[in-house]
Structures are given as C-alpha cells and as structure tokens.
C-alpha cells in the first residue's frame, strides 16, 4: 500500500473508532478497502470518498449513529479521569522541578528535599500508570483485527512506543542536566 493510501486508511480507522464501530467490524471495513483498491488500482479517496463521510455511511449501514463530534466523546469521561489527569500533570511538574533541584543541589518546591520529592512523584506517577493499566484491562477486547490474518491492525509501532517513552525520559534528563549546569 502507498503511504497516501495508508494515511487515508488510518483516517478511516480513527473515524470508525469515534463512531464506536466494533473493532472486528473496523478490521473488515479496512480489509475491504485494501482488497478493492488492490483489485481496481484506484485511489481509496477516489473510490470511497472522504474517510469521515464514508465512516458515517458504514456506521449507518450497521445501525449505529453517525459521528457526533468531540462533545459526545467528552461526555463519556468521568470525574475520576479528570482527577487522574490533573494528578499526572502536577506530579510530572514536581518530578521535573525536583530533578532540576537535584542537579542544582537545591530543595524542590515548598522547601521539600529534592530527593524525597522526586521519589514521591515517581510513586504517584507509577500509581496512576497502574490505575490506567487496570482500567484498560477491565475493558472488553476491542482490537481492530485483520479478518484475513487475525493480525492487530492498529498496533503501537516500535518507533511510536520509543517516542512515547523516550520523549518524557529525554525531557526529564535535560531537567537534571540543566540543574547541573547552574552549579
């Protein structure tokens, strides 16, 4: 598949997810598009149109609602989600601040020793990660599977995982180095 075809397919996958189409069904739709495009040599946009509009038609054909936008998605969030998001934000800031303090040989925010603050922030962040992992595991399996191979079609790629973990680690390391440079 060409990269532009892949981009169209990715847009369609997201649009179908937002319309709450079951994962196995999304796999079918994506495989149909791939199969059709391979056979006709057409461009997916030419044959299937705009991914969002196509997702609306698929949702309707399956007896589901058309896309209802971000507002509808936000209504699915609970207070617990909001609280955990804020806790992660604050803990991340305090971790960055205490790493800077460790480098510079200063105390962290509120006069707490940097080492203690950093350890506390790491514990809180680990707790939040565990909470998210547990919540994810409780959800029924809704993987987008290729009906032809049984393969997961929306797997987190190796480099995506590397960026997801690498970017925060790099930022926190730079905080430590920045602190060291002020000595």
């Amino acid at each position: 598949m060409k990269s532009t075809d892949q981009a169209w397919s990715d847009d369609l996958l997201l649009a179908l997810r937002l319309r709450e189409v079951p994962g196995t069904r999304i796999g079918e739709v994506l495989a149909e598009v791939q199969s059709h495009v391979a056979e006709t040599g057409e461009d997916p946009r030419q044959a299937f149109g705009d991914p969002k509009q196509y997702a609306d038609e698929v949702a309707e054909a399956l007896g589901l609602q058309r896309g209802r936008g971000w507002r509808h998605l936000l209504s699915g969030l609970s207070w617990a989600h909001l609280v955990v998001t804020v806790v992660i934000g604050v803990a991340s800031f305090l971790l960055a601040d205490s790493l800077w303090g460790l480098g510079a040989g200063d105390d962290a925010a509120f006069g707490v020793p940097s080492g203690l603050m950093a350890a506390g922030a790491v514990v809180v962040l680990a707790g939040c990660a565990a909470w998210i992992a547990a919540a994810t595991r409780r959800e029924p399996d809704d993987t987008v599977r290729d009906p032809r191979t049984g393969e997961d079609m929306a797997r987190l790629g190796r480099w995506q995982l590397a960026v997801l973990i690498g970017a925060p680690v790099l930022a926190l390391t730079l905080m430590l180095l920045g602190g060291l440079l002020t000595r």
Partner: peptide
C-alpha cells in the same frame, strides 16, 4: 458503482 456506495450496501444486507 463506486466502492463507497457498494460496500455500505453489502454491510447493510449482511446486518
């Protein structure tokens, strides 16, 4: 008949 028209029809028939 474009793919964008045909496949939703088939999906509906299957549903």
């Amino acid at each position: 008949v474009k793919g964008g028209t045909l496949y939703p029809i088939l999906a509906r028939l299957e549903t």
